[in-house]
């Protein structure tokens, strides 16, 4: 899928429509730029939603899918509220992020992608998020020494949470789970299989 896409043809737009959540909205953008002006993170990312949509129409597949823009969205929904054409811009951005991730095209070391992956893996294991394990996984994602440093830095908050009974240290032993753990895992696997089949993924970029 990395062959060059013809510029200013509909190919990539059609691909986005077929494979990206809410992607069929992209063609309805009228390029007013209200989303770009409304985004509080605007100055911090490569391309505004307006530009992303124009790049999709211009067939810039590589540039769109490797952009960091959709990963920087904080879901503040300013753009959705303000879009005169009622495009669900936040959702499109997340859809694009997911699509880039599935294709393995997300920027390397993108922290949002890493966190999202940790969160997902943590969740599907038991059907519930194990907060203790999730935090520890995050502390240690950049190696053991950095993990210890992170944990020390956060120990005040951690002990506070324990004292306030918001964090149970015993969760480290496996923690609580949904009633039918394997049922949930099967369900997720099946959904994944259906999506892969529909969008033509080969199971890569999990």
């Amino acid at each position: 899928m990395t062959t060059a896409t013809p510029k200013y043809r509909n190919n990539f737009l059609k691909e986005v429509e077929a494979n990206v959540e809410e992607g069929h909205w992209v063609k309805m953008c009228m390029q007013c730029g209200v989303c770009a002006g409304s985004c509080p993170l605007g100055p911090h990312w490569q391309h505004s939603p307006q530009k992303i949509f124009m790049m999709i129409r211009a067939g810039k597949r590589e540039e769109v899918l490797t952009s960091d823009s959709m990963w920087m969205c904080t879901s503040c929904y300013n753009c959705i509220v303000r879009c005169p054409r009622k495009l669900p811009i936040t959702h499109i951005m997340h859809g694009l992020a997911n699509y880039a991730h599935r294709l393995g095209m997300a920027p390397k070391g993108q922290p949002t992608e890493a966190i999202a992956k940790l969160f997902w893996d943590n969740l599907v294991k038991t059907g519930r998020v194990n907060e203790l394990k999730f935090s520890l996984a995050m502390y240690f994602k950049d190696g053991f020494v950095q993990g210890i440093k992170n944990a020390m830095a956060m120990q005040g908050i951690g002990l506070g949470l324990v004292k306030a009974k918001r964090l149970n240290p015993m969760e480290i032993l496996g923690g609580h789970a949904c009633k039918d753990k394997s049922g949930i895992q099967k369900m997720v696997a099946k959904a994944r299989e259906i999506e892969d089949r529909r969008k033509g993924f080969s199971g890569a970029g999990a």
């Binding site: 737009l13 009228m30 124009m54 211009a58 054409r85």
Partner: peptide, 13 residues
């Protein structure tokens, strides 16, 4: 204009 966009006409500024 919207109707044409729905049909897939691409508008490029």
């Amino acid at each position: 204009y919207r109707s044409a966009q729905k049909k897939g006409v691409i508008f490029t500024k």
